[in-house]
Amino acid sequence: MNALKGFSAPIVTGVVLFGLWEGVLALFNPQGFVLPAPSEIVGALIDNWSEVYQGARITGYVVVSGLLAGIIFGVLAALLVTRFRTANETITPLAVAINAIPIIALAPIFNNWFGLTSARSNQAIVVALVFFPIFINTTRGLTQVDRSQVELMESYAASRSRISREVRIPNAMPFFFTALKLSTSLAVIAAIVAEYFGGRQDALGPLITQSAGLTRYDDAWAAVLAGTTIGAVLYIVVTVLERVAMPWHSLIRSHREET
């Protein structure tokens, strides 16, 4: 239960915000023209439940699978780069070059590579986008270690892999989780925007563009709400994982708050 501590304040903020939204619209925009009220969005969500649910499943799959692959590639690259100098000299410039490309602009090209109606091209966009922050942050965590901790391990005649396990990897954990939190929202954005250009037609992206095209804005908002939910759930999962994986870290934080 301790892992869930600290979620009550955001929930209260959310409830207050939605109440204000609903109230202000009721006063000034009774037609629900430019912006539908939360109640209308929820109504649209209920009316189109099967469509939105299907879209969320497809997009959710793209997001989660792309995120996982991006994490695996990012962490593997970080481990290689910190272990082998030649890997560092080849992978790092390549990763920086890839990062300089506005990845999302590649969406139409990826459609050509992976097929216009397949989710593959959308997944590829997510992987490419998630890879870089995971790679860079994990590398930083693996290398920016307390010098005396490494010297201490050397004084015990510890092997390189032992030093990695005892010092570098635990040290990289907070860096990795920070990157992961950034990546969850990045992955949802990447998936939906990529879906605007192609991929499966029953995903959230096409649902939003089609609804907006037909001026069914409350339906479009319902799909946005589904996308938001995917992002929020992933963020919460990562936060809980972080607390489970690094009990000492929240301890440091709470101790600092006390003093």
């Binding site: 005396s148 010297e151 201490l152 004084s155 005649a157 010092v167 635990p170 690094m246 870290h249 440091i252």
Partner: peptide
């Protein structure tokens, strides 16, 4: 060094945050 003939301490305590106090001492 390979025979672990000496113990060492630095200016920064260099303790591992992810280990308890007891586990830090147990490391060597």
């Amino acid at each position: 060094r390979l025979d672990r003939d000496y113990g060492m301490a630095f200016q920064t305590a260099g303790l591992f945050d992810w280990r308890t106090v007891s586990k830090n001492i147990e490391l060597p």
